Amino acid sequence: MTPQTRKNDQNGTVPAHTPRLRLKAKAPHGGYVDGAWWPHSDDLAGELPDLLAVLSVRLGRIDRVSYRLGAWANAPRKLTTGGRAVRLDGYRLQPRNTIEVRGLDDDRDRLILLVIPPRTDPDDAHTTMMAAAQSDNGATIDGLLMISPQDRDRRAEAATAQQRWQSEGETVARPEVAQVAG
């Protein structure tokens, strides 16, 4: 099912379905990404019209979108949205889980968005989106995708269990060594 956009007399189009998106403030910020987007599906052509309608408020007219080849099920070379053609460029070297959205002034009008996989747990997606939108967050793409509280808790439990196993193993091994030596 492809989302439909409605015509808006002032700015071209407005989204029919508000995209799940968080952006950093426009002021200077740290980190690789400018925010995060959580699409509903892996159909790029179906997901982009609503996203671009929202991003055009910040970027103005959008000229092109770059994405990682093979990351999307449906990715044509061009997309017409809001009565304008937008180039879609797939690259093998595009960082995984990102898209780059460019306005007409490539040097100034661009956003790099972390793309959260569509089937991500809602709590994990929300946590990741909020972290990616923090102006002072300089985390990498991989770091942002592994930031969920559940993942942190699982890793902490695994580390604790590993430490406990190692300490109990040493306690058991020492008496055996002492008995053999004595």
Rank of each mutant, 00 (worst) to 15 (best):
P76V: 06
S135E: 12
K26C: 01
Q163P: 00
R108P: 03
V177C: 06
R22G: 09
Y67E: 05
P39H: 13
L114Q: 06
A159L: 14
R64K: 15
G12A: 04
K24E: 00
A25K: 10
D109V: 05
L145F: 03
V172N: 01
P175H: 04
G46C: 11
Y91A: 13
G12M: 08
D50M: 06
G12T: 11
R119V: 14
D50S: 14
L104N: 02
D151T: 15
V115K: 15
A159H: 04
A178F: 15
Q94G: 01
V101W: 10
K78A: 10
D121K: 06
G60Y: 08
A181C: 07
R155F: 08
R164G: 01
L93T: 11
G83N: 08
Q163G: 00
T2M: 12
R155A: 07
T140L: 02
Q10M: 13
D105Y: 13
M146F: 04
A139E: 05
A125N: 05
D151H: 12
D42L: 08
P122W: 02
G169V: 12
D9E: 13
T120Y: 01
V177L: 07
T98S: 03
T127I: 14
L52T: 13
H17P: 00
R92W: 06
Y67N: 02
D89K: 13
A181S: 07
P149D: 08
A131H: 09
E100G: 06
L44K: 03
N11Y: 14
T98R: 12
L59F: 09
D153Y: 11
A75Q: 08
V54S: 09
R22I: 01
A161P: 05
L59K: 07
G12Y: 15
A133V: 08
R58M: 04
P95Y: 10
G182V: 00
D109C: 14
L55Y: 04
A156Y: 13
I147N: 11
W72T: 04
E157P: 02
I62K: 02
P118Q: 09
D63Y: 11
D9L: 15
E170K: 14
A36F: 03
V57Q: 07
I99Y: 03
Y32K: 12
V86C: 01
L93H: 11
G82Q: 08
V57I: 09
G82L: 04
D106G: 05
T5D: 05
P149V: 07
L104W: 02
G30E: 13
G143R: 11
R96N: 04
D63A: 15
G143I: 09
A161F: 14
G30N: 05
V115C: 10
D9S: 05
G12E: 14
R164I: 03
D123M: 14
I99Q: 02
L111W: 13
A75L: 04
L69A: 14
A133L: 07
L144K: 03
R84C: 00
S66R: 12
E168P: 03
P15K: 01
A178Q: 12
G169H: 12
A178V: 10
P122I: 12
L51N: 08
D50R: 12
V54G: 00
A132P: 05
S167M: 11
R87G: 01
L23Y: 01
D153F: 11
S66W: 15
G83Q: 09
Q179W: 03
E176G: 15
S66E: 13
D123K: 15
L104A: 10
S41D: 10
Q4R: 14
V86I: 12
R102I: 00
